[in-house]
Amino acid sequence: MTRKRSKRTVQKKATARRSTGAGRPATKRVSLLRLAHARSGDKGDTANVGLIALKPEYYPILEKEVTAARVSRHFRGIVKGKVERFELPNLNALNFLLHGALGGGGTLSLKTDAQGKVFSTALLRMEIAVPRGLRVS
C-alpha cells in the first residue's frame, strides 16, 4: 500500500508528536476500526458513510481528526469527486458524502460494491492520531 503524505500532513503530525517532556510523543496512531463503527449506502453515484464513535469521548477526536480533506486523501483514486462532511454530535456521529464513488451508481455501475455498502469498513482502515493516554479497546 502506498501512503504518500503531503508535506502539510507531515508537519502537522510532527507538531502533534511534540515531546511531552519524557521524550515520548503525546499521541499514538490508532485505526478508526477501534474508535468507531460505520454504515454506508448510496444515492446515485454518491456513497455516504456514517461514522459513529464507539464511545462518546471518542467523538471530539473524530470531529477534529477525520476531516473531509483527510477522508478525500484516504479515498484518493477511489472517489472521483469531492468529499463533504456533516456533523451529528447528537448521535456522536459524522456523515460523509463521497461523490463519484460508485462507477456511475445504481444500475450503471459495474462494481461489485455498486451500492457502496462496504465503503463503511474501507473508511475504518484510516489511522488517526489520538492522545497517548486514551483508552482504546
Binding site: H37, D42, K43, N48, I52, L91, A93, N95
Partner: peptide, 9 residues
C-alpha cells in the same frame, strides 16, 4: 444509530 445514518445526505 447505524440505521439512522444509512443513505443519509
Amino acid at each position: 444509530t447505524e440505521q439512522l445514518l444509512y443513505e443519509m445526505g
